[in-house]
Design a protein around this nucleic acid. Structure first.
Lengths: 168, 168
DNA sequence: AATATATGTCAACATGACTGACGTAAAAAC
DNA sequence: GTTTTTACGTCAGTCATGTTGACATATATT
């Protein structure tokens, strides 16, 4: 295991400059990370919101509308328009849940999988390049810091390797 | 220096699961990172766009409108509305450049500094907690990966420590 | 003197978020 | 078995933030 140990001396108070660099890294990374898919989406008459829905439904097949709302943290009215378009244009299907027939379980269609791949491909490539250039130790560090930035309640969405996330 | 060396064996191809976790880490981190300031901004009748302007003007006093447009990557018409409000309500001042009198050099007023601190404070705290919990090695890794995600043209905005960023 | 640059402005439009109100079907509780 | 809660949907209106396109003005540059 890449178990770079973290001494107590390592856990000092970060200075203002470091913190602001973090803030800016996040801003620029997000800006550039979303730019390519946005350009593709525009050709379909879709926006970033559509990508998010397609992405998470692709990642969690059979998820409920509530699940999706919990991830996106938007209102059902906001989701409704976007999801409605995706269902209407045949990218996503809804089917009643078996245990609970009030639920509409969401799945990508073949067409939906195609678009998901097209969009996410760019983002995967961006991460693959960044990861490969950085090495696994850096990737571990990246993961640990990112988990620390995320609200504690949502850290459990990232199970697995490394103590960084679960602690605290 | 914290010079964790990165062997060639370390630079393997990341698997799909790792890449998707990266994508999701970025989504959740950005979502949670912006939530607190957004809530404060709403009380001022402002939005996230105002925060971005206040942040970068605070960080680069005397910057030009062009500089700001280059960072935000939005149109001047979009910026105009937001910047106009901030100037109109006394958070930002514009003064003609000395060398080039066409420029409007941007500065925060005392009121602007106050709001900037109020907003950015939350984000700094979030980063401080994440950094302290992770240790300096992890922070280095975070920085390296984030730089790799950012378009090469903008990496020079993050000078200094570590080889991770300048290479490539 | 002509051209390019830095900035601003008017107008129209799209996206994606919000609130509030109301409706329906199915599950859960009493 | 009736009531209540839950999951989901919908209509209507509003706001913030982005877009394009056209035009204006002052100052630098050629």
């Amino acid at each position: 295991m890449t178990d770079v140990k973290t001494s107590d001396a390592d856990r000092r108070f970060p200075c203002d400059e470091e913190l602001r660099q973090g803030i800016e890294l996040l801003f620029f990374a997000y800006r550039d990370f979303t730019a390519e898919p946005d350009a593709i989406l525009a050709q379909y008459g879709f926006g970033r919101a559509h990508h998010r829905v397609i992405y998470f439904v692709g990642r969690n097949p059979g998820m409920t509308v509530s699940d999706l709302l919990g991830i996106l943290r938007i209102t059902k009215q906001s989701l409704s328009r976007v999801l409605g378009q995706l269902v209407g244009e045949g990218f996503i299907t809804q089917q009643p849940g078996v245990r609970d027939r009030r639920q509409r379980l969401l799945h990508l269609t073949a067409k939906g999988v195609g678009l998901e791949n097209l969009l996410t491909e760019r983002q995967r490539t961006r991460f693959a390049d960044a990861y490969r250039g950085a090495g696994t130790g850096a990737v571990e560090g990246f993961r640990t810091v990112m988990l620390g930035l995320i609200d504690a309640a949502d850290r459990s969405r990232f199970p697995g390797r490394g103590p960084g996330g679960e602690r605290r």
